[in-house]
């Protein structure tokens, strides 16, 4: 599962840094960057006579962050385990279709629809995990292959949106508490659960161990295969939740809702932006959420400034590389 170059030498943060009580961990840097971005963005938008963080702006940021956030949470889990999932974008489309078609506009079918969508997602995750662990295909290729299979299925069976979610289910996508959408709160709740799972539970420790060094973890008695499969199932279920959320927002299932948004690479970008090491073993969900909000805020600022959409891509690319360059620099300096 070495989808990456050799991990950077980052055995860090011994007692010295901790005793100071505060360290510039990547997570802290992400949130500082987010704060700076919010300030700079507000100033820029204000210069053009708008307000970034008004009701509509906040709503925009949270809405953008919800779907990407769910996918990125899952992606964090697999990346921490030293794996990677390129199939999430198509899976989001597939689950949105499964949910919407099962519901078919009937309020009574909401629960079966959601459950079936999650079950489909879990099966896809299981396949990903088994292909990687049992067939020993590289994660990059395995999930790319599964993505192609899903794409073939979608292209063969759908030409456009299908299915319909009942009116009541759309509350999930549109209700809000003050300026904050309910779905965003649910996403943050799921992030909190994952944070607990990763940092406070045995499976979480195993995940970090497997991502840090597969062989060492195996020799220490961790069931590495089971851990990797579990990580992939969780990742796919998270992508499934994103699909369900998008179905509720769009009112129907859309085959290309995930790929149009580029969720596969975008979610990896968010994870890495959040300070998680692409090679696995270091990082966490908290940073990822910061990364997601940075991307969402960038998009919202650009919308408010009416920037050319192509320019967004350029900036996004530069931000991504710059951020990771800063982390890399820091870890190296601390090492020497």
């Amino acid at each position: 599962m070495t989808v990456q170059e050799k991990p950077l030498p980052v055995r860090t943060v011994p007692a010295r840094t901790r005793s100071r009580g505060f360290a510039f961990t990547p997570t802290v840097v992400v949130y500082l960057a987010l704060a700076v971005l919010l300030v700079v963005g507000s100033v820029l938008v204000a210069l053009r006579g708008g307000v970034l963080l008004d009701q509509a702006g906040l709503l925009n940021i949270f809405t953008r962050a919800t779907a990407l956030g769910l996918v990125a949470i899952g992606q964090t889990i697999v990346i921490l385990a030293g794996s990677l999932d390129l199939s999430v974008a198509y899976l989001v489309g597939l689950t949105s279709l499964v949910a919407a078609e099962t519901m078919a506009g009937q309020a009574g079918m909401i629960v079966p629809g959601v459950l079936l969508a999650l079950a489909v997602a879990a099966v896809v995750g299981l396949v990903n995990g088994l292909v990687i662990t049992v067939l020993r295909a590289n994660a990059f290729i395995a999930t790319l292959g599964v993505a192609l299979v899903l794409r073939g299925y979608l292209e063969h069976n759908y030409t456009g949106p299908a299915g319909e979610v009942p009116r009541t289910f759309q509350h999930l996508g549109y209700d809000r508490v003050g300026p904050v959408p309910v779905a965003a709160l649910l996403m943050l709740g799921i992030a909190a659960m994952c944070w607990w799972l990763l940092t406070r539970s045995r499976p979480g420790y195993h995940l970090y161990a497997v991502g840090g060094d597969l062989e060492v973890a195996r020799l220490s008695g961790v069931r590495t295969r089971r851990t990797i499969v579990t990580a992939h199932v969780l990742c796919s279920v998270a992508a499934g939740l994103a699909g369900i959320y998008l179905a509720s927002r769009l009112g129907s299932g859309a085959p290309y809702v995930g790929t149009d948004a580029g969720f596969d690479l975008e979610s990896i970008a968010a994870v890495v932006l959040g300070g998680t090491l692409l090679a696995g073993g270091r990082g966490g969900v908290v940073g990822t959420i910061g990364g997601v909000f940075i991307l969402a805020t960038l998009d919202t600022v650009f919308d408010d400034l009416a920037v050319d959409p192509f320019f967004k891509d350029v900036v996004r690319g530069v931000v991504l590389v710059t951020a990771v360059a800063l982390y890399a620099r820091r870890t190296v300096r601390r090492q020497s």
Binding site: Q4, A269, F310, F311, A328, R329
Partner: peptide, 27 residues
């Protein structure tokens, strides 16, 4: 250069380059 001097993993560097090229060319 970004990979070797700035020590950014090449996956990220070239992903960023992908975004920049796609955006810049159509811009």
């Amino acid at each position: 250069l970004v990979t070797t001097v700035l020590l950014v993993p090449s996956f990220i560097v070239t992903l960023g380059m992908l975004l920049v090229l796609d955006g810049a060319v159509f811009l």
